[in-house]
Amino acid sequence: MKLGLFIPCYIDAFFPEVGVATLELLERLGCSVEYPLDPTCCGQPMANSGCQDDASATEALFVHCFQDFDTVVGPSGSCVHHVRFNLDAIEQTPQAQKVRGRTRELVEFLLDDLKVVGFPWAAFPHKVGLHDSCTAVRGLGHARPSERVNEPYFSKTRDLLDKVRGLELVKIDRPDECCGFGGSFCVTDEAVSAKMGYDRVHDFHRHGAEYIVSADMSCLLHMKGVIDRLKLPMKVIHIAQILNGGPP
């Protein structure tokens, strides 16, 4: 199986260690991974603002770069969600449909496709707060949203973290409240975005979390900005880093 690694633009620029952890983790699990050097972004920032025209060239580039892979894996729920559900600023050629259908988010790839049973190398003896991103929960179906009360609870991210030695998940008051990142929303609606971020971070802090873990680095980028401003004794970490054996 030819596996293409999709590293979203903001991970490439701000959190290269998350890209490295994702790559190493996939290789550890026996995947043959290739990282094409040309893709820049999935087109989501433009498309999310309604700018289909501005998104189309980037989306075309994405499809072009990944069309020869059997599977594309990315460590970001929101980017994968865009590719799978909203990448339609370009003509829906067979190549585009193929790439969109084969793009997988890291958590679901590990759990549903590879059916990984354990991460024997991973230990993380910390209290951890789990942040499932909105697009992962409601867009990709990674967890039961809290409002669907009559359905059994599940969280794919939690299932993976349960396989890590020493890791203790803390319970918080609002398990899947949006952190307020929301793409360009975080600057165009700054006051609301920041207040949501503060509330979210305080919920984790109040319940003793040392780390906030997520499969979406964009939410963590935002919450890290809040944590650093408030000088709280907490850190953010991507799930790939924990599953790969902890932060470097």
Binding site: L37, V187, A194
Partner: peptide
């Protein structure tokens, strides 16, 4: 600079993932 009003900016790492990969 709305981001920085209530949040810190992320530190810029020494190299991008792409550079690391190369």
């Amino acid at each position: 600079n709305p981001w920085g009003k209530h949040r810190e900016l992320p530190a810029v790492p020494r190299q991008t993932f792409r550079q690391w990969y190369i």
